[in-house]
Simulated assay, not measured.
Amino acid sequence: MDKKYHPPFTITPSILNLVARISELIGGLDARLDHESALRLRRINRIRTIQGSLAIEGNTLSEEQITAILDGKHVVAPPKDVQEARNALAAYDCLESWSAHSESDLLAAHDRLMAGLIDEVGMYRRSGVGVMADGEVIHMAPPAGRVPILMSELLQWLANTDVHPLIASSVFHYEFEFIHPFADGNGRMGRLWQTLILFRWNPLFADVPVENLVHAHQSEYYTALQESTRQTDSAPFIEFMLRMIISALQGITPQVTPQVTPQVRELLRALKGEMGREALQAALELHDRKSFRERYLRPALAVGLIAMTLPDKPNSRLQQYRLTDKGRKYLAALQQKDTP
């Protein structure tokens, strides 16, 4: 008698607490969002979702540029980046038509997400592949010949498991990245499919910008993947993803003051009118350009508190940054709170 496949993971007390917290947040959102608010947030968060997921893979487009593409406007940007955004917009529009445990839908999603970017679209890879970081191979995926059976087992487990969807979606995401079934596009496919699994549990998740938070915590994302592989247990990755889901849900809860880091608050206080990167770094007395970009600038852009003055040219030497309406409201609320 064949033993059914079961991916290795442990449901820790921390995971159970995170699941309970997410359930509370979802209940609060369902009660607060009217139809008009839901539609407005859906568009905003869909754009943030796509920008975050693509940025993890090196795409340079801003939220403003992806909005322009969605509106059918011309965007001055690398053609590959534009194609990736168009593909992602088309793929996320298909969520309602796909089944999370359907192999044919999984392959169709890859076809849509990677069309025009690689030759092997909508099919499993036919050669070996490794995951690189800083010029080193940090993970060798299973041989190509094993991919079809591994994916079949994983999808069958997903179809039959009674594990909570919040946990099951994270387990699937980790196992998918471990298998690395496609020649390219595995990261964005794993994130898309976790969103689909969660959407099938609660439609609210169609547009919760989890990918945006993952982008802001990209190094932790890869660390959680590696630690789960080291432990042969996806619990570290499950906990990481559940924390990102909580942050994403808190970010779309109707409120004047979004959840931001101390570094982003410092940046907002330092931003006067329109300022370039060098001026901002000087105002904050920061010397490390990479640290400034990863800990201050990108997170502030990700939550929509600041915007580029030249969104069509994100890498321009003339690029400057300004507070958005959301940023001004947040800063005003922060200053009011600080006033005795």
Rank of each mutant, 00 (worst) to 15 (best):
K3R: 13
P13M: 01
I15Y: 04
I15G: 02
A20H: 14
R21G: 01
S23M: 12
R32N: 03
H35L: 09
E36T: 13
E36A: 01
R40E: 15
I44H: 10
I44D: 06
N45T: 04
T49A: 12
Q51C: 14
Q51A: 15
Q51H: 09
A55Q: 11
E64M: 10
T67A: 14
I69Y: 10
G72E: 14
P79L: 02
D81P: 08
Q83L: 02
E84P: 09
N87F: 00
Y92M: 13
Y92A: 04
E96H: 10
E96V: 12
H101K: 12
H101F: 02
L107T: 00
A108P: 13
D111E: 13
D119S: 06
E120R: 12
S127R: 12
G128C: 13
G128K: 09
G135T: 07
E136R: 12
M140N: 01
P148H: 05
S152I: 05
L155H: 06
W157P: 11
L158T: 08
V163I: 10
H164S: 10
H164Y: 02
P165R: 01
L166Y: 10
S169M: 00
S170R: 15
E175H: 04
F178W: 14
F178A: 08
F178S: 11
F182L: 01
W193F: 12
L196C: 11
L196M: 01
I197G: 03
L198D: 02
L198Q: 08
L198R: 00
F199C: 14
N202E: 07
N202L: 08
L204A: 13
E211N: 13
V214K: 02
H215Q: 03
A216V: 11
S219V: 09
E220G: 12
Y221H: 08
Y221I: 14
T223D: 07
E227C: 15
R230F: 09
Q231W: 03
D233A: 12
A235F: 09
P236H: 01
I238P: 00
E239H: 03
L242K: 08
R243S: 07
M244T: 04
G251F: 05
T253A: 00
P254N: 10
V256G: 06
P262N: 10
E266L: 15
L267M: 06
L268C: 07
L268T: 01
L271Y: 05
L271K: 02
E274C: 06
G276H: 08
A279D: 14
Q281R: 09
A282S: 02
A282H: 14
A283Y: 03
H287K: 11
D288N: 11
R289P: 00
F292E: 04
R293E: 15
L297F: 14
P299T: 00
P299R: 00
A300P: 03
L301N: 03
L301I: 08
V303T: 13
L305A: 05
A307F: 00
M308C: 11
P311H: 09
L318D: 11
Q319E: 12
Q320R: 11
Q320P: 00
G327R: 01
Y330A: 09
L334W: 06
Q336Y: 15
Q336V: 09
T339Y: 07
P340Q: 10
